[in-house]
Deep mutational scan, measured.
Amino acid sequence: DHDVVPEDKFQETLHLKEKEGCPQAFHALLSWLLTQDSTAILDFWRVLFKDYNLERYGRLQPILDSFPKDVDLSQPRKGRKPPAVPKALVPPPRLPTKRKASEEARAAAPAALTPRGTASPGSQLKAKPPKKPESSAEQQRLPLGNGIQTMSASVQRAVAMSSGDVPGARGAVEGILIQQVFESGGSKKCIQVGGEFYTPSKFEDSGSGKNKARSSSGPKPLVRAKGAQGAAPGGGEARLGQQGSVPAPLALPSDPQLHQKNEDECAVCRDGGELICCDGCPRAFHLACLSPPLREIPSGTWRCSSCLQATVQEVQPRAEEPRPQEPPVETPLPPGLRSAGEEVRGPPGEPLAGMDTTLVYKHLPAPPSAAPLPGLDSSALHPLLCVGPEGQQNLAPGARCGVCGDGTDVLRCTHCAAAFHWRCHFPAGTSRPGTGLRCRSCSGDVTPAPVEGVLAPSPARLAPGPAKDDTASHEPALHRDDLESLLSEHTFDGILQWAIQSMARPAAPFPS
């Protein structure tokens, strides 16, 4: 592969990997390779389809078979030569091979799209000592099968071997295949498990690692696999990028399955594409389908809103127990993405979901129960707010008499603000006073009005108090039968009158 990737590009890729991570280095090298001529790309395919690569990765054979028959990708048995050289000459001794072996032994695996480039050397060096003999053996194999790289107009793939297949390693990572398949204008990513390549439709969760975000852009890794992070704060999961590491605690105790298979379609829109997988259930989501939507993949363990709600429900009964003089119970939860139609709101002032922060849900004790107040519409209280300059209440639009249902020339009671006709409430011909108009209920007259088809109010509507207090003497005590009587009149003013009279009014101040 030294004929494909020059030394300066190799060093530039290593520097970019240390600065921005393996995914960015892979993407940059792939983009550079696509700008080369067809001879360089053909050399790339020839390096990929060597015999030892085909033996190690069985899924490469179907890719090789898909090439046109007129494309010669065979390799000479006596060494490598550029395709432009007409004579089959043995190339001179390859010093770059020693360079590659020494550099890969030092860096474990470079971040390139060629056999030198995919593992994360920093994480491997940190986690190597417990498994040094086995990992050293794996390093000797890295130059042979560490990076199976493929690129063409139909298929483009980048393979990364790992030393996680050490025997006896619980939940060992089998390997990473960062794979971009450009077929019919689409893009897919796969993962390699035990020599087999699994596409998103049959993606397997190998051991402790999972394909957290099938994305090839942005600074985030394709698999949430930063070796420096180790395990999740809650004892979460091992990262795919942690090559040759000792077994780590796999999943939280509440995880239903340690080796679950995540779905390959969004649980909201039932469509495929780039998904984020939940650590607590097999569901996966688009970032845009979450509520609120996320802009980037959160670091650490992530769970959907259903799993978060289940966790909150487990903690909430203990938080609601009476604990005198104790601060509110704080339950730190990872930043969760909410699927459509589901929402768990945190306290005000918290950062938005999706940031690399930890939301704190506070379970406050329930407030003391209070008697429910009568629910009145805002339009129902409008007549009470229509007060004239002299303190006389004006008529609201649409006000109707509670007896006849007519809204023409209605009066407004100064005591309960109900609309009424003087002739309907006082049919006996009582003279109307000039000021202080009161309806039949507030004036103490319980004589029913002779209106055909309208039920008369119940005599129990009024329960006047002592006459010594004029204001308190007109406080009506309405009961269920009074409400039914008012409802039978089918008037809004009657219902409003009952609601206003049912509310307690402050006692009249004593004259000074």
Rank of each mutant, 00 (worst) to 15 (best):
G241A: 08
Q242V: 10
P247I: 10
L252A: 14
L252D: 15
P253K: 04
S254L: 14
Q257F: 13
H259V: 09
H259K: 10
Q260S: 05
R270V: 12
D271T: 12
D271R: 08
G272D: 11
G273R: 06
L275G: 07
I276H: 09
I276Y: 13
I276V: 12
P282E: 07
P282V: 12
A284F: 07
F285W: 08
S291H: 05
S299D: 06
G300A: 08
T301N: 08
W302P: 10
S305C: 11
S306R: 11
C307W: 06
A310V: 10
T311D: 08
V312C: 10
V312W: 15
V315A: 11
R318Y: 06
R318M: 11
E321H: 11
P322R: 10
P322H: 11
P322I: 10
P322C: 11
V329K: 11
G336A: 08
L337Q: 03
R338W: 15
E343V: 13
V344W: 15
R345P: 09
E350D: 09
E350G: 11
L359W: 13
V360W: 15
P367L: 04
S369N: 12
A370R: 08
A371V: 06
G375A: 09
S379C: 10
H382K: 06
G388L: 03
Q392V: 06
Q393C: 14
A396G: 06
R400W: 14
V403I: 14
C404V: 02
V410P: 12
V410K: 02
L411I: 11
L411N: 08
A417P: 05
H421S: 01
W422P: 14
C424I: 01
F426Y: 14
F426Q: 12
T430D: 15
P433E: 03
T435W: 14
R438C: 03
R438Y: 12
C442Y: 02
D445S: 07
P448G: 07
E452K: 07
G453T: 02
V454N: 03
L455M: 09
L455H: 03
A460Y: 12
A460R: 12
R461Y: 08
L462T: 09
L462P: 03
A463D: 03
A463Q: 10
P464G: 14
A467N: 06
A467Q: 14
H474G: 07
L478R: 07
L478I: 06
H490R: 01
I495F: 07
R505W: 15
A507S: 10
F510L: 06
F510T: 06
